[in-house]
Amino acid sequence: MNETSAATPGLAEETEAAAGTVQSTDDTVGEIYVDDPRMTCRNVDVYYGEKQAIFDVSLDIGKNQVISMIGPSGCGKSTFLRCLNRMNDTIDGCRVTGQIKMDEQDIYDGGLDVVPLRASVGMVFQKPNPFPKSIYDNIAYGPKIHGLSDNKEHLDSIVETSLQRAGLWEEAKDRLDQPGTGLSGGQQQRLCIARAIAVSPEVILMDEPCSALDPIATAKIEELIDELRERFTIAIVTHSMQQAARVSQRTAYFHLGKLIEVGETDQIFTSPRHKLTEDYITGRFG
């Protein structure tokens, strides 16, 4: 994890020479707006106690799109993601300022309570964290507490469609009453995705969902993300640039708490406009 100055002088000259490359600036490079946003964030600052972790981030998250957030460790991408469903509320001393709206409702301003917010903004975590209950109960839990099912049959069908959408139905249909913790790592993560989509959220946040998985399981999840895009808006934090390139339509590059550059994934990976982005995606640091 290096500072901007870590780029060697020689490289700096090189990039300066490249036409259209923007040098360091505090403003985000690229188009933060989208035509059809599901969530809009404006001037978001996040503080952990005295320490500021996110600096003035503004970003739109488009409907039925996958947006990936990349950047070196500690750049604040996970912190930003956790602002979107107020998971940061659970951390002592964490403070969020600025404005985050979902469908024109401010999620921090009392416009939307945290419980319905989290029901419509689901989350998948870095480490698969199924409840130590049966596979069925894992998925049925959300619909149950929100009263989404009218009866047992309805609940059964929610469980089935969620598992099918998460691509786990074939593997799990005969063992619904067995503990979710008995599945393999990749299956557990797909179970967590099924649990998230069981409450029919509009947005799914994924915090490095594949970092604990092997390549085959990762490939399955990536495939799944692509399918889920039809129904859900997905924001994914990832360490793997290849993954970002494979699954997302837009990419946001974070560096030291600032949103440096955002744009179409193809553009970011082929012709980054900011030097830091270029250094990162070409593997000079990170």
């Binding site: 469903n85 659970t90 419980v115 319905p116 967590c192």
Partner: peptide
């Protein structure tokens, strides 16, 4: 992670 999982699906 269990707390996060529960809060993540919208449990109070």
């Amino acid at each position: 992670s269990i707390r996060e999982a529960a809060l993540g699906v919208g449990a109070s």
